[in-house]
Design a protein around this nucleic acid. Structure first.
Length: 321
DNA sequence: TTTTTTATAAACATGG
DNA sequence: CCCATGTTTATAAAAA
């Protein structure tokens, strides 16, 4: 197969470029694109829910936990790259469908000769390389509804990164500060009609227009390349696009989940060669866009196509009103 | 080097 | 009052 089909330009580092403008810009130098694997959580439940589940009935653990069995992601052991490249937890959670298995993996940077491997204690106490934005992003993405209260964001971080188990409380302040300040996250009201609504505060979700930038941030953190599939998953529950925080929209958790699997074809605006198939696979949690690896689509094109699809969906929902 | 991003601390407000 | 949540400002370190 062609190697060139696996090298795509990186995501645009400018979130505004993802915000809906379809303006084409010159392509940046090609870099390998790879999917990003998040640290798996022990279960797909929120930390609070996971806690209650553990204390009651055995949870059918997903491959996510098998992927990292006996090891927290906060243990930053670069001598073993499996936990960094394993996507099975994400596959299991979202029925991620890859057209081809991953066959090429670039190893992470190795330890320098003579450098001692990190001891488990040191690994547990060493700070994870993720920014707070990335941590929050991963926590929200790993939640069933793609939205979490700040307390559960804390919980996810603690349960996935032992460092924060013993760290002083300042990092929670940083999490809240990041949530407030970052444009990538949006605050939405809890559904007050839900009986199980407990706790205070709002729920936080990822703004769809910043999602790719967050993914790219994660990819950079991993310094991990090598995949022959390009894929973008998008949350089934997009963050409501409120103009500001004054009018917060409450969303029903199931209103987007009844869609049947759709399979559309879209015209590639950059190509004269006809149509390129964009396969959408929708699970109960996520909708995945899978492109054939032979395609010459770069990420920018994919973004444009996806925006186009989303625009059509939005237009369709408006027409339905 | 400068600029931008990120981390950290802290003051303050709000609401349960 | 206490505490969790959320916003904002300030500062320093790290990264680009």
């Amino acid at each position: 197969m062609k190697n060139s089909s696996h090298t795509l330009p990186p995501f645009s580092s400018s979130p505004t470029a993802l915000g809906g403008s379809l303006t084409l810009t010159s392509s940046p130098p090609s870099l390998p694109l790879s999917p990003v694997s998040f640290p798996p959580s022990p279960t797909s439940l929120s930390p609070a829910a996971a806690e209650s589940a553990r204390s009651s009935s055995p949870v059918s653990h997903l491959a996510a936990s098998q992927c990292l069995e006996g090891r927290g992601l906060g243990h930053w052991d670069t001598s073993n790259q499996d936990d960094l490249t394993c996507l099975s937890w994400l596959h299991q959670r979202g029925d991620l469908l890859l057209l081809q298995p991953m066959t090429k993996v670039t190893p992470l940077p190795r330890r320098q000769p003579g450098q001692l491997p990190p001891s488990p204690a040191a690994a547990a106490s060493s700070k994870p390389p993720y920014s707070f934005s990335s941590l929050i992003f991963m926590a929200i993405e790993d939640s069933p509804q793609k939205r979490l209260p700040v307390k559960d964001i804390y919980g996810w971080i603690v349960s996935n990164f032992p460092y924060y188990r013993t760290a002083t409380g300042g990092w929670r302040n940083s999490v809240r500060h990041n949530l407030s300040l970052s444009k990538s996250f949006r605050r939405i009201q809890r559904d007050k009609s839900q009986l199980q609504t407990v706790g205070k505060g709002s729920l936080w979700c990822v703004c769809p227009e910043y999602r790719l930038a967050l993914l790219e941030g994660l990819r950079k953190t991993h310094s991990y390349h090598g995949s022959n599939s390009c894929l973008i998953n998008k949350p089934v529950l997009p963050c409501p696009l409120t103009p500001d925080h004054e009018e917060l929209v409450t969303m029903e958790p199931h209103e987007y989940q009844a869609h049947e699997v759709s399979e559309d074809t879209e015209k590639d605006p950059l190509s004269d060669s006809g149509y390129i198939e964009l396969h959408y696979y929708e699970s109960d949690q996520c909708q995945y866009l899978v492109l054939p690896s032979e395609s010459e689509l770069d990420l920018e094109t994919v973004e444009i196509l996806q925006l186009d699809v989303e625009a059509q969906e939005a237009a369709g929902s408006l027409l339905d009103l």
